[in-house]
């Protein structure tokens, strides 16, 4: 029997008054993959996630999650998913340990097994030292870790993560990324939303770009980048003093990287890139480094929506 995808959605719609938060979205998320929903604030990402997690009812459309129909078997869907929302879904007055014991009990663990599972999760998430502290005294990073731990009491088929790294410092963000990759490696399907193009690029095997409740593009990071139809040549002159001359040779579309010595110029293909390199060589400008890359997702987003990404 062929395995159904983890998520299959068709024509999902949800309006709040006049606002069409989700306006006809189809989605296929294969099992065991990381799938990113990328879009600016207010694009409808959270509503889409909440619909798939049975928290918000769709006005129209249908979806199956881990083989169960969202509208007709919500309890079976709930048994197969876990969701970590954008705002900590924890009891702030309780300790980290008590939060996890409570949730383990709600998943059906006995008291002893619930305490055991809570201890395992606290250790796995490096929270053992804070186990007896009330959650309101946790830092943002600790809170997010506990919130994700709370979604892993049992192994979910699909884990929904709504902007999992928003508001985290770079090291906490890197930790969450490692965690997400680790879970995917264990076979958990992950559907995450993000405003960070880099995050989607780093984590997801497929990305859906959402704007105004509609899916405006979908594909692998590479495919999305290819949709702009061009690449970028990056060069770093060996002698930083030559940057201005090199910039002149590369032409009007070239840009200097504000922080480094690197110069970038959009090119249609490899032939054009080679021509640029040849002209630099003719002028006697030696290069420390050069590379031909796809455009960044920022550039892709701009090309798709005509707007700067949030």
């Amino acid at each position: 029997m062929e395995m159904e995808p983890a998520i299959r959605a068709r024509g999902l719609r949800r309006a709040f008054g006049d606002l069409r938060a989700v306006d006809g979205i189809d989605l296929d998320v294969p099992r065991g993959t990381i799938f990113a929903i990328l879009g600016p604030n207010g694009a409808g990402k959270t509503t889409l996630l909440r619909i798939l997690a049975t928290l918000t009812r769709a006005d129209a459309g249908e979806a199956r999650v881990m083989g169960h129909d969202l509208a007709h078997e919500p309890d079976k869907v709930r048994a197969a998913i876990a969701m970590t929302g954008q705002f900590a879904s924890l009891d702030e007055d309780l300790t980290g340990r008590e939060n996890l014991v409570m949730l383990a009990r709600l998943w059906g663990f006995g008291w002893r097994a619930a305490r055991q599972r809570a201890a395992e999760l606290l250790a796995a998430f490096d929270l053992s030292d804070a186990a007896r502290k009330q959650v309101k005294d946790y830092s943002g990073g600790m809170r997010r870790r506990l919130d994700i731990a709370a979604s892993l009491i049992v192994t979910p088929g699909v884990l929904f993560l709504d902007e999992p790294t928003t508001g985290l410092d770079p090291s906490a963000r890197a930790g969450v990324w490692r965690l997400i990759r680790g879970l995917a490696a264990e076979g958990v399907t992950i559907l995450l939303t993000t405003q960070y193009l880099e995050e989607a690029d780093q984590l997801a095997s497929r990305i859906a770009v959402i704007d105004h409740g509609r899916k405006i593009a979908e594909g692998t990071s590479r495919e999305l980048k290819a949709q702009t139809g061009s690449g970028v040549l990056h060069v770093t002159p060996l002698d930083p003093g030559n940057r201005a001359i090199a910039l002149g040779i590369l032409g009007e579309t070239a840009q200097a990287d504000p922080e480094g010595a690197r110069l970038s110029v959009p090119v249609a293909d490899d032939t054009e890139a080679a021509a640029h390199l040849a002209r630099l060589a003719e002028a006697g400008i030696r290069l420390a480094e050069f590379s031909l890359g796809a455009p960044s997702l920022d550039e892709v987003f701009f090309a798709l929506t005509g707007k700067e990404a949030a």
Binding site: L106, G108, A123, D126, L152, V154, E186, V188
Partner: peptide, 22 residues
Amino acid sequence: MSAPLPQGPRPAPPSPASTSLT
């Protein structure tokens, strides 16, 4: 961080009484 996923099987769903007690 070590592997956070549980090793054992899932417990049976709790009864409404047990849930309310929690």
